[in-house]
């Protein structure tokens, strides 16, 4: 089996927003849709002891997604490899999945034709990987700091499974029981 996950090394992220730009350009997103914002709480600490952390976000491609069973039309679905995606041909845009997601990583664009909107979300570049199974998502390819690492968790030789096995990783909002599959290697601060 294949289980695609992403490891995000926050120690390496410098907050350049390249992944955001690459995703928006390649996936041709409307302006009000951002799949992978890079957020920060700003500079923390008191001079001269300051640090700043960047948290790249994206759909968590949860093991138990909240957004899939609530979908009335079956548009929101999960592949065997763990990818959660929305089929625009089936979507009604009732926005129940948007409300169900604890991470706020889905939305329907308000800039499209009023009679033809659908919910969009990160798909780990599913369309690209269908053409070439070894392809990496655009945000991973474009990250010059190699802060985003994509791979198969079930393959013991992949970089992600080695990292997750050897380094302490965090996940966001595990209390909802969604088993998010984006693993963060936290930056503890103090590293310029």
């Amino acid at each position: 089996m294949t289980r695609y996950v992403m490891v995000i090394d926050q120690r390496r992220c410098i907050g350049c927003h390249s992944c955001t730009v690459a995703c928006r350009v390649w996936n041709k997103l409307p302006l009000d849709i951002i799949y992978n914002p890079v957020v920060s709480e700003g500079v923390q600490g008191t001079w001269p002891n300051v640090h700043r952390n960047w948290t790249p976000l994206l759909c968590m491609h949860c093991e138990n997604p909240e957004c899939v069973p609530c979908c009335p039309s079956g548009a929101s679905q999960q592949d065997d490899d763990g990818t959660v995606w929305v089929d625009p041909k089936k979507c009604l845009s009732c926005k129940v999945c948007v409300n169900a997601c604890p991470y706020g990583m889905r939305d329907a664009s308000h800039m499209e034709n009023r009679m033809h909107r659908f919910v969009r979300k990160c798909t780990f570049c599913r369309d690209k990987r269908q053409l070439d199974p070894d392809a990496q998502p655009y945000c991973v390819e474009t990250c010059h700091q190699k802060a985003r690492i994509f791979g198969d968790l079930d393959d013991p030789n992949s970089e992600v499974s080695k990292l997750i096995g050897s380094v302490k990783t965090d996940r966001i909002f595990t209390e909802f029981g969604t088993e998010p599959q984006i693993y963060y290697i936290p930056c503890l601060g103090g590293q310029a």
């Binding site: 069973p69 039309s73 079956g74 979507c91 009604l92 845009s93 009732c94 009679m115 033809h116």
Partner: peptide
């Protein structure tokens, strides 16, 4: 009218588990 695609509202009946259905 709140749907993004009002013309195909009947798709709400295409799955078994959803509470909206």
């Amino acid at each position: 009218i709140d749907l993004g695609q009002p013309g195909v509202f009947w798709r709400v009946w295409t799955t078994a588990t959803s509470i909206i259905k």
